[in-house]
């Protein structure tokens, strides 16, 4: 009976791609300083966010919390000196990049994977990787599968519009095996498909799957294979061409990493204000010369640490041990601890 019945979710990603192509042609590349000017005149940073629990949590009180959300607040502190001049908008994987291109968001903190196509063909800039993720496979234990290649002929659920869709196809082409992809758009349906046996396995960023596993009826009947099919460096994405905005994003993220490296936390940051170490004085803005030189509030790093804590604290609070996601630091640890996090010097 529906006269809108030709509306088909399959169309959404196609339309998204078509519009992304159109917008790339139409939209001029951003100019340096343009984004910051816009942000300052509207008094608000517009951030596109995703739906992965732990990274983006819509609280019962209508307030956002989460790992990526905290970096949005950190940006607000850098630009405005306060964590709440930021507007988070849910953006689905199909429309987030076109929407960023169209100027709907100033930055995407929605767990976008940094890729060469997105940098060159689509013209996006990426800030420092906030989270090193990799694509995993969540499978039923009774399949007796230990490696991805064992899934020959299996039915595998993928979420549409993500790099996961392409990676799994590449993986099976490379290994010469076959699989049947089932494209699922809705996050809730994604888990249900495995629960109901409609698919044998789900593939997605492993952090996402860690959260999804807890939602299954019998989580213990499923296992997240240790193998990673891909590198998924999740980084902040901005429109290409605006170097100034990119630097603000870069150094906001670096500040949280540098603080952890220096052992500065939310609780002890004030005790560092009296430090005689010139690099700490510069970092916290006790010596304002650095901040003045780069045109930011000299105390931006201090303000971020005082309000949100360093990278490690942000990690542990939202997705670390003891939270629902219960993730190890893994690659997302300081380089000094065997991870990949490294901040260039603040000088």
């Amino acid at each position: 009976m529906s006269f809108f019945s030709h509306i088909n979710h399959r169309i959404a990603p196609l339309a998204g791609i078509a519009i992304l192509a159109a917008s790339t042609l139409l939209a001029p590349a951003a100019k340096a300083g343009e984004t910051l000017d816009k942000i300052k005149s509207r008094g608000l940073i517009k951030v596109g966010v995703g739906t992965t629990p732990g990274f983006f949590n819509p609280g019962s009180d209508g307030k956002w919390t989460g790992f990526f959300i905290d970096f949005g607040r950190a940006l607000s502190i850098t630009v405005f000196g306060t964590p709440d001049k930021v507007e988070f908008t849910n953006s689905s994987p199909q429309q987030r990049l076109p929407a960023l291109q169209a100027g709907e968001y100033d930055i995407l903190l929605s767990g976008v994977t940094q890729t060469v196509t997105r940098a060159f063909k689509l013209g996006f800039h990426f800030g420092p990787v906030l989270f090193y993720d990799g694509q995993g496979l969540l499978v039923r234990k009774d399949l007796g599968v230990t490696k991805g290649v064992d899934l020959d002929g299996a039915t595998i659920g993928v979420q549409s519009g993500t790099t996961g869709e392409l990676n799994i196809a590449d993986f099976f082409r490379k290994t010469g095996k076959s699989f049947t992809p089932v494209t699922i758009e809705d996050t809730g349906e994604f888990v249900k498909a495995l629960d109901s046996g409609r698919v044998d396995a789900l593939t997605q960023d492993s952090t996402d799957l860690a959260g999804k596993r807890t939602q299954l009826k019998k989580p213990d009947d499923y296992v997240l294979l240790p193998e990673r099919l891909s590198k998924e460096p999740l980084a902040p994405a901005i429109r290409g061409g605006d170097d100034q905005w990119l630097e603000i994003v870069n150094w906001t993220v670096y500040a949280t990493i540098q603080a952890e490296e220096l052992g500065i936390t939310k609780d002890n940051v004030d005790s560092f204000l009296t430090s005689k170490d010139p690099s700490i004085q510069r970092f916290l803005g006790v010596d304002p010369s650095l901040g003045e030189a780069i045109g930011l509030d000299p105390k931006f790093a201090y303000n971020i640490i005082k309000t949100l804590g360093n990278y490690g604290e942000i990690f542990e609070r939202n997705i670390g041990k003891g939270t629902t996601l219960n993730l190890d630091r893994g690659y997302n640890n300081l380089w000094t601890n065997g991870g990949l996090l490294y901040s260039p010097p603040f000088r």
């Binding site: 629990p53 983006f56 019962s60 959260g211 996601l325």
Partner: peptide
């Protein structure tokens, strides 16, 4: 409704 079930305290 969908977003309400993405709260880690009340997941899924």
């Amino acid at each position: 409704a969908r977003a309400s079930a993405a709260d880690p305290n009340w997941l899924g």
